[in-house]
Structure formats: C-alpha cells, structure tokens
Computed example of a mutant assay.
Amino acid sequence: MNSNKTSHFDKEILINEPEDHDTYNLRLPEGTATAQVYQVFPGIQATKIDISSYQYLPETNKSRRIIEINHCQSGRFECQMEDGCFQYVGEGDLFLSPLQNHCNNIELPLGYYQGFIITIDLDGIPCEWSRILPGMPNNICSTLERFFLLDECFLIQSRDAIKHIFSDMYSVSEKIRGVYYRLKIMELLLYLFCFDPMIESRKNIYARQQVDIVKQIQKRITEKLSYRFTIKELSQEFLISATALKQHFKGVFGQSIAAYMKEFRIQKASQLLCESEQSIADISAAVGYESQSKFSAAFKEIMKVTPLEYRKTHRINP
C-alpha cells in the first residue's frame, strides 16, 4: 500500500498486505481486533475496524496536525476528555477529534465495536481538490478545524445523512472497495464542509462520579443473573434517583437496563449452551428465567434460532 501513512497502526501486527490496503491484528490486553487500512488519498486513510474487547489502547502520533473522524456502525465507545468528563459514541454517531487531544485508553462498554476511522493529515492532503473533482472546495479539509473552536472534540449524533454516507461502506464488494471509499470520503468531506457546528449541542457527556456509579450497578446486576433487580432496589442501594439511574445507564451503555440485561442474559446462555453439559432448563434458570418457554422465546428473538438449534450448531465438543 502507499507508504504515506497517517494512521496509528504502524506498531500493530501486519497480517496481510494486498495492493490497495493493509490488514492488521491489533495488540489488546484482552480480546481480538482487526483493522483494514486503505490509503484513499495522499494524507487520508480509511480504516475499517472490528474489535471484540472491553478496552482498546491505540498508538497515536500527536506531533502532526491530524484529525480523526470515527463512525460507529455497532457497539459503543467511551473516551475520557481532558476535563475529566466522559464522552460516549453510539451506533450511527460521527465523532471528530484532533490527535493532539486523542484519548489513550478507549473503553468499549458492550465488549465489541465495529466502525470506520478516517484520518486526515492536514499538512499532507492535496492542495487543490478541484483537480481531483472539479467543483470541490480547495479548503475542504482545512475547514475541519472549525469543529474544535469551542471544544477538544465534536459529536454529530446519528442521522439519515450520515447513514447514507456510511451504510454501504461496510458491505461493498472488495473488488471496488478502494475506489468506492474515495467517492464516499469526498462525500463525507462535502457534508462536513457544509455542516454548521453551532447547530449541534454538546451531548453524551457524563461526569466520572456518574459513570462510576453506573458501572458499579452494571457489575452488580450482571454478577447475579438469577435475580432480577428492580430500579427501586438499585436506586436505594446506590443512592441515586430512579430517573438519574435510567438516564445515566442508557447514556453509558446505550440501552435501558431491561434491554441491556436481556441481551446479556442471552449472550451468557449462548456461552453455556456451547461450553457446558447443563440442560436448557437449568441454563434458563441460571440466567434468570423462571419459565423455559419465556427463555426460549427471548433466545430466539435475539439469536434467531432456538436454544436447542444453537447448541447443535455451536457446541464445542458435540
């Protein structure tokens, strides 16, 4: 691939290097991750990233004027800002930040993340975009710095225009992926060029104390799956109002407590179906379902197959 690199994957494990992109295995404390890096223009890279972990420690080069644009396809990530507050980016969101203010430790509350990272080296991009595409503004990339006039980062919450730009980038045929990404990056830059940062209010920001309480609650309810906690019980135990509890939990994990726990229980059940000899009735009770029929219905709703079908297909030692 073109050696004009702007990303922070140089120290990762390169496992594949076809003509138009590099593929890396990322070094994580726990879990696995891959990154496919495409050099779409001089100074601009598009990276498709897939992480199965609760933590990601990126290597960053903060000595250059590089802007990073993150699009979240699925999952969620948390980064702590310099003022101590926490920013959360969820499905469909677009998150912009200069690498000088990049977070060195990214938490993934749901244990997984899929998305795109667009890195733009403001000192290495083409001087005249109109030569690449007549009608493109020549200052289209340098104007991205206006997103950080009032803050160190900028979040654009999910909307149809962003979905339109990114939706097919995750599934486009590998044969045309490189040229397709070039078209889509130009579309993204035009969208941001026309976007008024003043119309987007600062959202999804939480203080450390709020985040710590929510994470304590999440630990409490996931360690005892056979018991179903009520909002009232949790608010009394952790000295937080029911309203604040519901709002802050959804802010950190992107879901209500009920929706989060339903998915968590089913994921735990799927693990037990694969790795244990327990009966389906015992597994349903272990993850908090008194009725096996309700467990089976919930399992099929999320996993699209029955528990028995799942066990037959995914059993480690059949």
Results as ranks from 00 to 15, higher is better:
S3M: 03
S7E: 11
N16A: 09
D20V: 15
D20I: 09
T23E: 08
Y24I: 02
L28R: 02
E30S: 15
A35G: 02
A35T: 03
Y38I: 05
F41V: 01
G43H: 01
A46E: 04
T47V: 15
K48N: 09
P58I: 10
T60E: 11
R64M: 04
E68V: 09
S74I: 05
E82F: 12
Y88C: 01
L99F: 15
N105P: 00
L108A: 15
P109F: 09
D121Y: 03
I125H: 05
R131M: 11
M136L: 15
N139F: 07
F148I: 11
E152K: 11
L155P: 01
S158Q: 13
H164F: 12
D168P: 05
D168R: 13
R177I: 05
Y180I: 04
R182W: 06
K184I: 02
Y191T: 06
L192D: 00
I217W: 00
Q218L: 02
Q218V: 03
F229R: 02
T230A: 14
A242L: 06
K246A: 10
V252P: 00
F253H: 12
Y260H: 04
S270C: 14
L273C: 07
E275I: 06
S279T: 15
D282E: 14
V287I: 10
Y289G: 00
E290M: 15
K294H: 13
F299N: 07
